[in-house]
Structure formats: structure tokens, C-alpha cells
């Protein structure tokens, strides 16, 4: 693995010219990656605070975090977190999550292969006339559903991958977007196997 430097005393101040470890001197910054991680936890008081505190306390990123009980009988909740960082940080995040006492399982869906993810948005667009018609037309193209409407507004429900939801929201901005509520990402691995 590592090459062998010749044994010898480097006098203090004279660095050993040995070939450095490939890890410690990799040129430039390591790439930032994005991962979607599923975490199965006991649904108990404070468990979300533990997860969030871990991210804030150790300076990790949270791009999206969703949580809901998925197994009421066994009091299990599932947290889906989208995070980004260098590969080393991402491994740390998973190890630190797994170390939390109420955590049952940590699965890196991005690394585990294919997964599907969905983000749901409720988008309120206010306006009249041509803009209103255009909003409805675009909603139709994006297969967004009208879940509430008045003479001067629509509430669209849009659910798809986050990037497509983003795109829809961008298009709604000039057409009178007044309010937005999103769930964040929920995700599940492809294939027959469960978490």
C-alpha cells in the first residue's frame, strides 16, 4: 500500500522525503458529493433533535430532511436526509448517525444503487387574466394538480423529483407565486429488498 521510506533519522526541521500517503496529500480539495440517506429510528421524544443536533454540532450540511412514523406498531420512524460533503465527511455522517443510540439502520441510498425520490410541493399562485391561464397551462404540462382554487388564485400540488419541482416553481414565479410549502425529499431504494 504505502511505499517504504529508507529508515533513518530525519533531523528536526528536515522533512523525511518519503513518499507521502496517498490520502493525506491529495492535490486540491476533494469533490463534494450529494447523498440521500435513509435512517430508521425509534420514534421517541428527542430523536429528531439528536439527528439535527448531530448535523449542526459537527457542521454537516442538511439539504433536506423529512421524518415520519412508518411502523406505528414498533414505533419506528424513517428519516430521509439529503446531505452533501466530501466522501470522508459523508462516511463520518453515516457513522455518526449509526452511533446514535435510538438509530436502528442507516442506509446510503445513493451508494446502494438506484432509488426513487419524491418531493411534494403546494404552490399558491395568485393572478388573473393571461398569467392565470398560463399558470394553469404549465401546471397541466407538469401534471400538477389543482387542489384549491378561487377566482384569483390556484393552489397546485406538484410532486416529482426535487429538480423538477424546482423547475415548476421557477416557472410559477413570474406568474404570481405567492406561497410555497414543500415536504422535502422522501426516497426508497429500487428492488425487492426492504431496508
Amino acid at each position: 500500500m504505502a511505499s517504504s521510506p529508507t529508515p533513518g533519522a530525519p533531523t528536526p526541521g528536515a522533512p523525511n522525503p518519503a513518499a507521502p500517503s496517498v490520502y493525506s496529500t491529495s492535490p486540491g480539495e476533494p469533490p463534494i458529493e450529494r447523498r440521500t440517506i435513509a435512517v430508521l429510528v425509534d420514534n421517541e421524544p428527542g430523536v429528531l433533535a439528536r439527528v439535527i443536533g448531530l448535523f449542526s454540532g459537527r457542521g454537516y450540511n442538511i439539504e433536506s430532511l423529512t421524518v415520519s412514523e412508518v411502523d406505528p406498531e414498533n414505533h419506528l420512524s424513517r428519516i430521509t436526509v439529503v446531505t452533501s460533503g466530501t466522501p470522508q465527511i459523508l462516511e463520518q455522517i453515516k457513522a455518526q448517525l449509526d452511533r446514535l443510540v435510538p438509530v436502528h439502520t442507516v442506509r446510503d441510498l445513493t451508494l446502494a444503487g438506484g432509488f426513487v425520490d419524491r418531493d411534494l410541493a403546494l404552490v399558491k399562485v395568485a393572478g388573473t387574466g393571461e398569467k392565470r391561464v398560463e399558470a394553469l397551462r404549465i401546471a397541466d404540462i407538469f401534471k400538477a394538480e389543482v387542489v384549491d382554487a378561487g377566482l384569483d388564485y390556484f393552489v397546485f400540488q406538484m410532486h416529482h423529483r426535487s429538480d423538477k419541482v424546482d423547475r415548476f416553481i421557477e416557472l410559477m414565479k413570474p406568474l404570481g407565486l405567492v406561497e410555497l410549502s414543500r415536504t422535502g425529499v422522501v426516497a426508497i431504494a429500487r428492488g425487492a429488498r426492504g431496508l
Binding site: 500500500m1 523525511n16 500517503s21 496529500t25 470522508q88 462516511e91 457513522a95 455518526q96
Partner: peptide
């Protein structure tokens, strides 16, 4: 960056979050 640069490192630990 200058910590034991030439060594192959083995790490025994009970806590996976201490690794790397």
C-alpha cells in the same frame, strides 16, 4: 499532512465513527 506519511495504517476501534 505530515502525520506518519509513509506508513500503512491499521486502526482497531469499537466506534466506527472514529475510523477515517
Amino acid at each position: 499532512s505530515d502525520f506518519s506519511p509513509g506508513s500503512t495504517k491499521i486502526h482497531i476501534d469499537i466506534d466506527p465513527s472514529s475510523i477515517n
